[in-house]
Design a protein around this nucleic acid. Structure first.
Length: 438
DNA sequence: TGAAATGTTGGGGCG
DNA sequence: ACGCCCCAACATTTC
């Protein structure tokens, strides 16, 4: 019987997995494969990176689930091209199925792999799984991509309505389990330990993707208050595909337009990155690269550690450092503070978040930072500067969240303001104005 | 998904 | 009763 491989990447689940479904339905025997990508892992600073532990645990579980149905998961560690050269030696296959990944590194990697596979007469067949709509599915009438969220969202919603009426399959689950018998039967594909890859187990554990119906339902009213358990915390699960984005979009469409909007933001930033890859290193709006950032290293250190003297900023940074998570409202406040009050390049903050956030996603993180600094799509105008006092009073009125992470608030061990708000605000306005008008 | 400055209005104290 | 001032509350403009 002809064999094909299904290559898991950021879609680490058996249920409702588009590419896997198509592989299983191809009528061929499906061999599941996962590669721990050396190129990515070597770039990580922290040898105890919680995301690596999370992926490792997830892969182990996936392996167990596949064994339970008589198959297994092949797990490899190395540079993808090198690994693929080995794999095609070991297994006689006619095609590789996978799900599309839109990040610049992934696109380039997949192009190289496709080229190699093609030289072996093996096709690389990619499906949409990671987003609801890909970058060419929601475009302006003139064919250009949207760069402003609100009209994008409108078009996204009409596209969804259209799909739902014309395509009864849309947003429904891919019934992978019906085709489990098409998985290849083999045993004991060996595992790879964290240690073999140069990592150690992290002490930070990731909450599983539980049912979050009530959170989605009440999302609109509760999402802005960091003391509440009001956000879904599903970011990391979307990132690695341990839940299906379609499943959550289905629920969101029924339960909460505000939550659905957050999923639309995710598609929005994904298509922005796909269409405008220069944003990885440059401002979306070129003239924002003229801003003479102060980039003071001591200020940056204090921001990182949560020692700015502004309780809401410090609480956010300490939440990030100790848990790998930060409430979204607080992400905006800390990002505004770094770029506008301290005049530090948004790329520094972006890189710090990339290192620390369990739910780090290049497109969303970059989008958020460029939004905060004013340089991005749909950007907050540069003169929109969050007042950390006002934000604290509005969103953490009784200091419940702040005290959780900054217990010494109000005592003399708590640091003085790193910079006066009014002074910093005026300095920012002058700096931005001069740079943008020059 | 901002905040501050400035403008306008209207009620009330007061001579 | 009237004009004047103050100021809170709200609206608009500006950054």
């Amino acid at each position: 019987m002809e064999k094909v491989i299904f290559w898991f990447r950021r879609d680490l689940r058996l249920a409702d997995n588009a590419g896997l479904y198509h592989a299983l339905r191809s009528g061929k025997e499906v061999i599941p494969l996962f590669i721990f990508d050396k190129e990515i892992l070597n770039g990580l600073k922290d040898r105890k990176d919680a995301r690596v532990t999370f992926i490792h645990d997830t892969i182990r579980q996936l392996k167990l689930d596949l064994r339970a149905i008589g198959s297994d998961l092949i797990v490899k560690f190395g540079s993808p091209l090198t690994v693929w050269k080995e794999v095609v030696e070991e297994y006689s296959i006619t095609a590789v199925f996978t799900n599309r990944d839109y990040e610049p590194y992934a696109k380039q990697r997949d192009e190289k792999i496709a080229e190699f596979l093609s030289s072996q007469n093996i096709g690389l067949i990619k499906h949409k799984d990671h987003v609801i709509f890909e970058s060419d599915e929601v475009l302006k009438d003139d064919g250009n991509p949207y760069t402003v969220f609100t009209p994008y969202k409108r078009k996204w919603l009409t596209t969804l309505a259209k799909e739902n009426t014309t395509n009864s399959y849309f947003l429904s689950s891919y019934p992978t389990s019906k085709y489990h018998s098409n998985f290849s039967k083999f045993e004991n594909g060996p595992s790879i330990s964290l240690e073999q890859m140069g990592f150690e187990r992290s002490s930070i554990s990731i909450p599983p993707a539980e049912t979050t119906q009530s959170i989605i339902k009440n999302y609109h009213d509760r999402r802005n208050f960091p003391a509440l358990n009001g956000t879904s915390r599903l970011g990391i699960h979307f990132r690695f595909g341990t839940i299906s984005i379609r499943e959550k979009a289905r629920k969101a469409a029924k339960l909460s337009e505000t939550y659905l909007s957050e999923l639309i933001w995710r598609d929005f930033y994904s298509q922005i990155l796909d269409h405008f890859p220069h944003i990885v290193t440059q401002a979306f709006r070129a003239k924002y690269d003229r801003i003479p950032w102060r980039n003071n290293k001591e200020d940056f250190e204090k921001w990182c550690k949560g020692e700015t003297g502004y309780p809401i900023v410090d609480a956010g940074m300490r939440e990030l450092n100790s848990t790998g998570h930060m409430h979204n409202r607080v992400r905006m406040i800390t990002a505004s503070f770094l770029t506008k009050h301290l005049l530090i390049d948004w790329r520094w903050g972006e890189a710090y978040f990339a290192e620390k956030l369990l739910d780090f996603d290049l497109a969303s993180n970059n989008g958020g930072w460029q939004w905060a600094s004013g340089s991005g799509t749909d950007a907050a105008p540069y003169f929109r500067i969050f007042n950390p006092h006002t934000q604290l009073d509005k969103f953490d009125k009784n200091r419940e969240y702040t005290k959780r992470f900054v217990p010494e608030i109000g005592t003399d061990t708590y640091p003085d303001y790193i910079v006066d708000h009014k002074f910093a605000r005026e300095r920012c306005l002058e700096t931005y104005k001069a740079a943008l008008n020059s």
